Simulated assay, not measured.
Amino acid sequence: MVVGIFRALGVAAMMMALAGCIDRANEPVLLAIGVPVNPPGVAHSICMTDGNAMYGEAKRQYEVRAQLTGYAQADALEAETIARAAAHRQYVACISAQGYRTLYAN
Rank of each mutant, 00 (worst) to 15 (best):
9 L>C: 10
57 E>P: 01
92 V>Q: 13
32 A>E: 11
20 G>M: 06
27 E>I: 12
79 A>Y: 01
64 V>Q: 11
75 D>A: 05
96 S>D: 04
53 A>P: 01
69 T>N: 07
68 L>H: 03
4 G>W: 06
98 Q>L: 04
87 A>M: 08
102 T>P: 01
90 Q>I: 01
101 R>A: 10
90 Q>T: 03
48 M>Q: 14
39 P>S: 14
75 D>E: 03
94 C>R: 06
17 A>H: 07
29 V>H: 13
50 D>S: 07
31 L>E: 14
32 A>Q: 10
16 M>Y: 06
101 R>I: 06
93 A>N: 09
45 S>C: 04
94 C>S: 02
31 L>R: 06
24 R>K: 10
99 G>T: 03
102 T>Y: 04
73 Q>T: 09
39 P>F: 05
35 V>R: 11
10 G>L: 15
68 L>Q: 11
96 S>C: 03
23 D>I: 10
6 F>A: 11
105 A>H: 10
37 V>Y: 10
40 P>T: 15
49 T>I: 11
104 Y>L: 15
102 T>M: 12
70 G>S: 05
35 V>I: 12
88 H>K: 07
68 L>N: 05
40 P>G: 13
54 M>P: 00
81 T>I: 03
52 N>K: 14
54 M>Y: 00
61 Q>T: 00
86 A>E: 00
69 T>H: 05
39 P>W: 05
37 V>S: 10
61 Q>S: 05
103 L>C: 11
76 A>W: 02
2 V>H: 08
97 A>R: 15
86 A>L: 02
3 V>S: 10
44 H>W: 05
97 A>T: 07
1 M>F: 07
86 A>T: 00
57 E>C: 03
63 E>R: 08
43 A>G: 11
21 C>K: 08
84 R>F: 07
1 M>N: 08
77 L>W: 02
82 I>L: 12
58 A>K: 13
88 H>Q: 07
71 Y>S: 13
56 G>F: 04
2 V>C: 05
43 A>D: 02
98 Q>G: 02
9 L>M: 14
98 Q>K: 11
15 M>F: 12
74 A>M: 09
28 P>Q: 13
39 P>C: 14
59 K>F: 07
27 E>L: 13
39 P>E: 08
9 L>I: 09
25 A>W: 06
3 V>H: 07
104 Y>W: 15
41 G>P: 01
35 V>L: 08
19 A>F: 08
33 I>T: 10
27 E>D: 15
76 A>Q: 07
78 E>M: 08
37 V>C: 10
19 A>I: 01
43 A>P: 04
65 R>E: 04
78 E>Y: 06
83 A>E: 00
29 V>Q: 11
13 A>M: 08
73 Q>N: 12
10 G>R: 15
78 E>W: 02
99 G>F: 05
89 R>D: 00
7 R>Q: 06
7 R>E: 13
104 Y>M: 12
44 H>I: 02
5 I>F: 08
84 R>Q: 11
36 P>H: 07
59 K>W: 14
46 I>V: 12
36 P>Q: 11
82 I>K: 13
70 G>F: 03
95 I>Y: 03
106 N>P: 09
10 G>A: 13
72 A>D: 06
5 I>Y: 06
27 E>T: 14
34 G>F: 02
86 A>R: 10
32 A>L: 12
40 P>H: 13
76 A>K: 08
65 R>L: 09
15 M>E: 11
99 G>K: 04
23 D>C: 11
106 N>M: 04
65 R>V: 02
93 A>G: 09
52 N>I: 06
26 N>D: 04
21 C>N: 15
4 G>K: 10
